[in-house]
C-alpha cells in the first residue's frame, strides 16, 4: 500500500505517490461520478419542478431556489445523493434493528439466502469440476451443457421457480438460495476446471513417480494449484449469488429482503427507497467480494505464497 506507508512523508511527496497509486484516481472518479449525479438530479427533476411551479402559479424564481427544489422532492425522478444518504441513515439508525422497517434487517435476509446459495453453489461447482477433470468423456459431454445452462434466463424465471417451489412446500430461505446456487455454480465450475488442470505435466509426472493415487494427486497438487483460480471465480459467484437472492425476493411472496424493498419502492413510486435499497445491495456485494479477498490473502499466507 503506497498511501499508508507515505503518511509520514513530506506532503508534496505524498501527493505524488498518491497520484501514482490507485487511491487518488479512484477518489477523483468517485468525485466526478458524484458531480454527474448531482447534475443529473437537477436535469432530470427540472421538468417536474417546473410543472409544479406552473401549478402553483409561481412566476419568478431564482436559480438557487430551483436547484434546491429539484433536490428536495418527495418522489424525485432521480434523488440527490444526500437524499439517499439521509434515507439510508433514517432506515438504518432511525428504527430498531429487528424492525421490518430497518434496512439492515432486509440486507441480512438477502445476505443469508445468498450465503446459503453461495455455499451450495461452491460445493456443486467444485464437485462438477473434479468429475469433469477426472473423466475425459464428461468434459466433452457435460461442459457444453454447463455453458448452455447459463443461457437459460434463470433470473427471468426466478419468480416462477419460487412460486412452483412454494406450492410443493419449499418456502423461505431455500428457494432463494437455490436460485443463487444455480447462478453461482457456473463460474466456480469453469474456474475450477481450469485450475484443477493447471498443474504442469512435469508436476503430474513427479507425483506419478511417487506412485501417488488420484486422490493424493488431487489433495496435494491439483487443489492447491486451483486456489488461484477458485478465488476470482468465487468473487464473481458471490456477486451473482446476491443478484439471485434479490431477484428471488421479487415475487410478492417475499415480505422481506432488499428485493422486496425494491419492488415495494417501485409499486409506490418511492424512488428514494429504491435507490437506498440499491446502495445497500451494492455495499453488500462489495463487502462480500472484499471478505473473499481477505480470505484469499489469509489462505495465501497460510500456504506460504509470496506476493
Amino acid at each position: 500500500m503506497t498511501t499508508t506507508s507515505a503518511i509520514f512523508a513530506f506532503p508534496a511527496d505524498l501527493i505524488r505517490r498518491a497520484a501514482r497509486g490507485t487511491a487518488l484516481p479512484v477518489a477523483t472518479i468517485l468525485l466526478l461520478a458524484l458531480t454527474l449525479w448531482y447534475a443529473g438530479t437537477v436535469f432530470l427533476n427540472a421538468a417536474v419542478v417546473t410543472d409544479q411551479y406552473q401549478r402553483d402559479r409561481k412566476t419568478s424564481w431564482t436559480t438557487e431556489e430551483f436547484i434546491a427544489d429539484t433536490m428536495s422532492m418527495e418522489r424525485p425522478v432521480l434523488p440527490a445523493p444526500h437524499q439517499v444518504a439521509a434515507e439510508l441513515e433514517k432506515s438504518i439508525f432511525g428504527v430498531r434493528l429487528t424492525s421490518k422497517r430497518n434496512l439492515l434487517y432486509h440486507a441480512w435476509v438477502t445476505f443469508s439466502a445468498a450465503f446459503l446459495g453461495f455455499g451450495f453453489g461452491n460445493l456443486l461447482g467444485i464437485a462438477l469440476a473434479i468429475a469433469i477433470v477426472h473423466l475425459k468423456s464428461l468434459e466433452r459431454a457435460l461442459l457444453p451443457w454447463v455453458i448452455a445452462s447459463q443461457t437459460v434466463p434463470t433470473l427471468a424465471i426466478a419468480p416462477m421457480i419460487i412460486v412452483v417451489l412454494g406450492s410443493i412446500g419449499f418456502v423461505g430461505l431455500l428457494p432463494k438460495a437455490l436460485i443463487s446456487t444455480y447462478l453461482c455454480f457456473f463460474p466456480v465450475t469453469i474456474g475450477m476446471v481450469k485450475g484443477l488442470s493447471s498443474p504442469e505435466p512435469i508436476q503430474l509426472d513427479l507425483l506419478r513417480t511417487y506412485s501417488a493415487s488420484e486422490v493424493q494427486t488431487l489433495r496435494y497438487l491439483r487443489l492447491p494449484a486451483s486456489l488461484s483460480f477458485l478465488f476470482p471465480s468465487m468473487k464473481v459467484a458471490v456477486a451473482l449469488a446476491i443478484v439471485g437472492a434479490i431477484v428471488g425476493e421479487l415475487p410478492t411472496g417475499a415480505q422481506a429482503g432488499l428485493g422486496a424493498r425494491l419492488l415495494a419502492g417501485s409499486y409506490y413510486g418511492q424512488t428514494v427507497q429504491i435507490w437506498s435499497a440499491l446502495v445497500a445491495a451494492s455495499v453488500l456485494s462489495g463487502a462480500s467480494v472484499g471478505l473473499i479477498d481477505l480470505g484469499e490473502r489469509w489462505l495465501d499466507r497460510r500456504l506460504g505464497g509470496q506476493r
Binding site: I246, L263, I274
Partner: peptide
C-alpha cells in the same frame, strides 16, 4: 483515469445492476 476506473469498474460489474430495471422503466 484508467487507474481510477479499473477498480471502480470491477466493483460496478459486481453490482446487482438488474436492480436498476424499475428505475429505467420509470
Amino acid at each position: 483515469l484508467q487507474r481510477g476506473l479499473l477498480p471502480l469498474g470491477n466493483l460496478v460489474s459486481a453490482l446487482p445492476i438488474v436492480a436498476v430495471a424499475p428505475i429505467m422503466v420509470m
